[in-house]
Design a protein around this nucleic acid. Sequence first.
RNA 1: GGCGGCGUGGCCAAGAGGUUAAGGCAGGGGUCUGCAAAACCCCGAUACGGCGGUUCAAAUCCGCCCGCCGCCUCCA
Length: 451
Amino acid sequence: MKIFNTLTGKKEDFRPRGEAVTMYVCGITAYDESHIGHAMTYIIFDAIKRYIRFKGYKVKHVQNFTDIDDKIIERANQIGAAPLELANKYVDQYFADMDALNVERADIYPRATAEIPKVIEIIQGLLAKGYAYESEGSVYFRVRNFPNYGKLSHRNLSDMISQASTYEKKKEYPLDFALWKMSKPGEPFWDSPWGRGRPGWHIECSAMALKYLGESIDIHGGGQDLIFPHHENEIAQSESFTGLIPFARYWLHNGLMQLDKQKMSKSTGNLVSVKEALNHFSADAIRLFILSSHYRSPLTYSEQALEASERGTERLRWAMTHRTNVNQGAAMLNAQPFEQKFIEAMDDDFNTAQAIAILFELAKEINRGAEQGTNITEAQHTLLKLAGTLGLTLKEKTRATPDAEAFIRLLISIREDLRQSQQWQLADKIRSGLADLGVTIEDTSQGTRWK
RNA sequence: GGCGGCGUGGCCAAGAGGUUAAGGCAGGGGUCUGCAAAACCCCGAUACGGCGGUUCAAAUCCGCCCGCCGCCUCCA
C-alpha cells in the first residue's frame, strides 16, 4: 500500500509501527454547523480508515474537538450563550450529521477543555528546554529554536518573514505562536503557572495525540488548509517536547471543497451545510460524489454533480436487488478479478475514483448475469463488501413508514389485477398517482417493484 | 512576492512515457415491455489549455505562456 506523504512530497510504502495503526485526524472548531467541506474531510478519512482495516490492520483513531477558542467566544457573546454550551451544541450536531453520512465514530474524541493538564505539562516541558517563553501572561513557542521549522509546508523562515505583516509586540519574533493565551476579562479561563488563560489552538492537538496515541503516530490527517500553520506548529511543539522525530510518520491532507470557484469556508459564509445536502441527496450519493475524485484534489460542489451521483448510486443499488432463483449448475459470476482491481486502485494512495469505477463495472456484470441466469449471489456479496469499504451502504432509501408501505403494497396488488384484465388506464392512473407522491413503480419480468 | 496544486469528450472524473485514453451523468440507436421506467447491447475524445523541446514513442518528462484555485491570518 502506497500513501502520499505531505512531509516528503512522495508516495511511500505504508509500514505502520505497531499492532494497531495510530491515526489522528484534526476535528472541527465547534462554533457553527458542519458543512459539506467538513463532510468531505471526514468521509475521506473514514474511507481511508475502513480500507486500512480491510487490509487487515487494526486502527486506533482519535479526533479532537476544539471547544474553546476566539471564534467560539465571539459567537457565544453575540447570542448571549456560554461558550462551552455553544460548543457542546455544535459537537452534538456534528455527530448527528456524520452519523447520517455513515461516518464511523473515532475511538476517542478528546476535547481541548478536558485536556488542560496535559497541555500545561507540555508547555512546562517546552519552557524548561528553552523552546518557549512567557510574555505578559501568555506563553509563546520560539520558532527559531526549532531547526526544521517549515519542513511540512516546504517553506523556510526567511520566505515567511518577508511576508509577515504586523505582529504582537509581546512576541520575540513575528512567527512565534501562542501556546497559552492569557484570558481577557469575562472570557473563560483555566488556572496555570502563568496565570489564568486558555490553550493556544495548536497545542491541544499535540497534547491529545501524545496522550492517546503515543509519541510517534502513524497517520496524521486533515484538510490542506491545516498544513500551515497548524500542522507545522504541531510538529514543532511535539518534536521539541519529546525529542522524538518524527511526531507523525505519514501526513495526509485532503483537497478542499469549492463552491462557486471559492473555498467553502465558515468564516466567509460560502458554504452548504451537511443538513441541507442531506435534505436533497442520500448519504450514499454524497459519499459517492466526494469519493469519485481523488482525495488530494479540490472538488466543486454543485447540485448537478450531486444529482449525477444520486443516479449512479441508484445504479449500484439496483445491482444489489436481483434475487435470482438460480438453477443448479448455473454458471457463477467470478468477482475475484474485480476485487483484485479494486485493491490495486486503493493500494495506490487510496484511489477511490478508480475503485468506484470498478464497482460500476462489477455492477454491470451482475446486472448482465441476472438477465442471463448466472449465479450472481457471491458477486453481490463482493460488491456490497467493497462498497462498504468506502462506507457506501447501497441500501434503498426507505422513506416510507411501515403503514405507508402497506398501503403502497395494496395499491400495487390492485394495479396488478387491473393489468391482468388489461385496464391500462386505471393501472396507469395508480402509477402516476404514486409517482406524484414520490413512489416509483417498475414492472419487470419478475413482478412489480417500487421505491 | 514565496510555496503548492489544477486545466482530459456536453458535465463530473481516473490515467502520469508505448496494446482499443477507466468510470459516472447527460445524449443517440436497438432489445425487452400494454405503455412507462429500469436493465441489457451498440455509438461517440485522431485526442488530453497553448507554443516549443527531449524521445523510436508524451495527455504523461522539460521550458515558456495563458487561465483557474489553495496556503502564507482563523479555517476540514
